[in-house]
Structure formats: structure tokens, C-alpha cells
């Protein structure tokens, strides 16, 4: 009996074909990935470390309150203390670029799947595949198509992090109260308008949970991307593993944990009412400042009355 499915060979053939025929495409992607990465990394690495920490702490303060602000400051100072700041910023840049790309791909895909049962039926198993395939396996084709460096790291991270974004977007939109969607239809709104004015706003908590998951998965993948020379904290962890360097391993590992917690709380804040509330408050404040001129005389009136009394 000689039963052997040459699945591996098929995949290899497909990859080889892509390598030879789609070189221009992957080179383009590589250029885009690297460009984005360099841009984001410049933002985090150029200013003085302390300035970055202060800005992050202030943002944290606004997003969730003083506890989170303080925690953010202490966590980032810890990263500086274990001498992983540059690596952490590199990893953060990679996460942000990968998560951004994953969001850009997954939300429209999720919307499409929510509105079309055929698309949904195709997307679902693909997402199962992407999510359950061991993460390290993505690195093999990534290297083949993008060579060593940050680009294959971003590519593998995007593939791995895609699934929850698509799933939670689809779920969120499909779970929007049917009657409210019907109300939009009954008043004659076009499908695009219903999507913008009803489905997306009401699905926002679910979509933001998806974005949160994308970021968390990206972060976990970033470490694995260290294996393909993406550098950053992942690179340190890989190095520590190969030389059994306990201090380095744990210091880099803790830096990942700190980044993870900060990112999770930030995105969580925007998924919850608090975050939306914050946005609304900011908007109101901007609206109020625009209306300040007419409001001012009204406010001063009681004072003059007091003075007279």
C-alpha cells in the first residue's frame, strides 16, 4: 500500500509559482509594509523616551482615569528600566502596522460576510483555517515571499490576527436588532445608509472587541516573528531562548506583558461605553467652544443680577 497525499508538495508548488510570477506584487507589499513600519517607528523612536511616556500616560488618563494613567507610566518606566525601550518601540510599531492592516482587511470583509450568506459561508472556513494553523507555520511562506526582516513578520501577523476581526464584525452586524434595521428600510433608507447610520454604530462594541482581539493576537505573534528576524522584543526572546539567557528572556517577556496590558486597556476603553462617551464628550466640548460667543453673555447675566441685589 502506497497511500500518500502530496499536500506539502502542492503548497510548495503554489508558493514557487507565486514567487516567480507574482514577484512584483509581493515586492510592492514589502515596500508598503516597510514604509508603514518605518513611519510608525519614527514617531515612537524619535522623541525623547520621557516625552513618549508622558504623552502615553496623559492619553491613558483621559481614556480610563488616573489609575490607568499611573499604571501606564510605571509600566513604561519598567521597560526603560530593563533596557528594552528601543526593542519595545520596534515591537509596538510592528503591532500597530500589522493590526492596522488586519483591521483594514477584516472589517470590510466582515461587513460583506454579514450582508451576503454566500460570502459568509466561504469566509467562515477560511477564518477557521487561519486561526487554527500553528502560528509558526506562517513564517515559512512569509520568508519565501518576503525574505528576512520586518516584512514577513508583518505578513504572518496580519494573517494570524485577521480572524477575530472578521468574525466579530460579522457577528456584530448580524446581531443588530432586526426591527431597527427594518425601521431604516421602512423609511426608505438605502442599504449603504442603513449600514452607516444603523448597523455599524450599533455593532460598534462588537467590532471594537474584534479590533481589541486583533491587537492582542498581533502582539503574541510579534514574538514569534522574532524567529524571522523581525527584531524588537521578539528578537530578544528568540535570542534568550537559543542561549538560555534567563534574565534577558524574562525582561523581554515582561516588556511584552506590559505592552499587552496597556494596549488591551486602551482598545477596551474604546469598545465600551466609556470610550464612546469620551469621544462624545470631546465632540461636545468642541461644539461648545464653537458656540462660546453667544453663550457668554447669558452666563454673565446672573452675576450682574447678583451685583445689583
Amino acid at each position: 500500500m502506497d497511500f500518500r497525499i502530496d499536500f506539502g508538495q502542492w503548497v510548495t508548488d503554489a508558493l514557487t509559482w507565486m514567487q516567480t510570477n507574482l514577484t512584483w506584487f509581493f515586492d510592492l507589499l514589502r515596500t508598503i509594509f516597510l514604509g508603514l513600519y518605518d513611519a510608525v517607528n519614527w514617531v515612537f523612536s524619535t522623541p525623547p523616551t520621557l516625552a513618549v511616556i508622558v504623552v502615553a500616560a496623559i492619553l491613558a488618563l483621559f481614556a480610563r482615569g488616573w489609575k490607568f494613567g499611573l499604571g501606564t507610566a510605571l509600566g513604561l518606566l519598567f521597560i526603560v528600566g530593563v533596557d528594552q525601550w528601543d526593542n519595545a518601540m520596534n515591537s509596538l510599531s510592528l503591532v500597530i502596522v500589522a493590526a492596522f492592516l488586519a483591521v483594514v482587511v477584516s472589517i470590510p470583509l466582515g461587513i460583506w460576510a454579514a450582508r451576503n450568506d454566500v460570502v459568509s459561508a466561504i469566509v467562515k472556513p477560511v477564518m477557521d483555517f487561519l486561526q487554527t494553523m500553528p502560528a509558526l507555520v506562517y513564517l515559512i511562506p512569509a520568508i519565501a515571499l518576503f525574505r528576512i526582516g520586518v516584512a514577513p513578520g508583518i505578513f504572518a501577523t496580519v494573517l494570524f490576527a485577521l480572524a477575530p476581526g472578521v468574525r466579530l464584525t460579522e457577528l456584530g452586524i448580524r446581531n443588530v436588532d432586526k426591527e431597527v434595521v427594518e425601521a431604516g428600510q421602512a423609511f426608505g433608507a438605502a442599504p449603504g445608509r442603513i449600514l452607516r447610520q444603523i448597523q455599524l454604530p450599533l455593532a460598534m462594541p462588537s467590532i471594537m472587541a474584534g479590533v481589541n482581539q486583533i491587537i492582542m493576537l498581533s502582539l503574541s505573534m510579534v514574538v514569534i516573528a522574532g524567529f524571522v528576524g523581525a527584531g524588537g522584543l521578539g528578537g530578544e526572546v528568540t535570542r534568550a531562548l537559543s542561549s538560555l539567557d534567563k534574565p534577558l528572556g524574562f525582561e523581554a517577556g515582561m516588556a511584552v506583558v506590559v505592552l499587552a496590558i496597556i494596549l488591551d486597556r486602551f482598545t477596551g476603553a474604546f469598545g465600551q461605553k466609556r470610550g464612546l462617551h469620551l469621544i462624545k464628550r470631546l465632540r461636545e466640548r468642541m461644539g461648545a467652544s464653537a458656540n462660546e460667543a453667544p453663550a457668554a453673555p447669558a452666563a454673565s447675566e446672573p452675576q450682574t443680577a447678583d451685583a445689583r441685589g
Binding site: E179, A186, F187, G188, P201
Partner: peptide
């Protein structure tokens, strides 16, 4: 949709407000 906008509107059991 044009007819719904101009000719016929609806009130829902569970209000269906935005």
C-alpha cells in the same frame, strides 16, 4: 424606497429607535 419615503411609514412593536 421612494414610495416608502413619501407614502407609507411604520411604527414598530419594540419601538425600533436608533
Amino acid at each position: 424606497r421612494a414610495i416608502r419615503r413619501k407614502r407609507i411609514s411604520m411604527v414598530f412593536q419594540h419601538f425600533a429607535l436608533l
